[in-house]
Design a protein around this nucleic acid. Structure first.
Lengths: 187, 187
DNA sequence: ATATGTATAGACCGATCGATCTATCTACAT
DNA sequence: ATGTAGATAGATCGATCGGTCTATACATAT
């Protein structure tokens, strides 16, 4: 009967990479990742095959967490699709105001990994399509005339909010986007 | 009386870096830049002091060119502020559809240069404020009730368009943003 | 003709990159 | 007790990084 003293090297590495890759970018060195996770060099290659594999798993788990965050946010807003969608932008207001926030990790990864064949792009693409569908579903139940286009617009507002939150802090981009989101919801 | 055969090393380096840094990111190697520009290693340090100095000058000249592009686009649309602002999004439609487009170079630079003291950030910040003022001026002459907030929203739409153009090609984000820009212009 | 500017070519520096390797240690199952 | 799997520590690899250096070529101004 042993006490679970600390997570295994795989979990430690994932968590450390989650934070370090966000704060330092995907070009952060392997040494820095290993040191932050307090993990042996070999464990990285055993569990993830290499740095690229680690990057992919970090994005995959981050996407799962962010998806859960979207659902939690919308569910907490009740059943009204309008309120559920607007709640997303209130949540974005919290996220962009969080200390250490500096933009969308998926966009940062896409822009930094210039090789179009890097497997990370598939993760980010799937994640965006997933969020798009999440938004579109709400618009459908709202009776929106063009739910797919509407979801495009909401996703564009989300990306714009995260970009502005990173590059023009203090301008409350989430509130600005929320106003425009109302135009999307009630066209 | 000699024929101007080719620009000097400074101009060649700026032009090559303009293209290579956009396509490969700011982490592109110095060797690649020198080879693309066909310039001696020493010339880089003579003219720009180092790679960081080159990055800054590339962003500065790109900002000047993009500023001119905004003005040209708006002037070509006539005197009506509404038409002048909407023309920006039509232009974004062209830009995002251009082969080789993969996002906003200024946002990419900000996300890739994780050192907050890097001089490049000052260039991008000034450029955004400049574009913001450009948009705000049109809203003022339009009699917009909150021109500053409106310009925030238009800038957010621009950033969202460039992000979506890079990450979700084929969704015509410029047209989606143009619809929302109409909400901003006629609130 | 000569001196000066600026350019090129390329060796060279220490540091760091991602990745592979050996060797050792430990926890656990048999 | 022993074997096995997984973990750690760290040496080492070739490649590349940004930056400095020497040596040479060439244009122009004096």
């Amino acid at each position: 009967m042993s006490v679970r003293t600390q997570p295994g090297p795989r979990e430690r590495l994932l968590e450390a990479a989650h934070q370090l890759i966000y704060s330092q970018g995907v070009n952060v060195g392997v040494d820095a990742l290993l040191k932050a996770a307090n993990v042996a060099r070999r464990s990285l290659y055993e569990h993830f095959g290499g740095k690229d594999g680690l990057i992919v798993e970090v994005l995959r788990s981050a996407a799962a967490a962010d998806d859960a965050d979207y659902r939690r946010t919308m569910d907490a807003a009740g059943d009204n699709p309008r309120e559920r969608l607007l709640a997303v932008f209130d949540r974005l207001g919290e996220i962009t105001a969080t200390p250490g926030f500096h933009g969308c990790r998926y966009l940062a990864a896409d822009l930094a990994l210039t090789d179009p064949d890097h497997p990370a792009h598939e993760i980010t693409r799937d994640y965006r399509r997933h969020v798009h569908d999440l938004l579109e579903r709400e618009l459908v139940t709202l009776g929106h005339p063009r739910p797919e286009r509407g979801a495009d617009q909401l996703l564009l507002l989300i990306d714009g909010t995260l970009a502005a939150g990173a590059t023009r802090p203090g301008t409350d981009p989430a509130a600005a986007a929320r106003e425009l989101a109302e135009c999307v919801i009630a066209p």
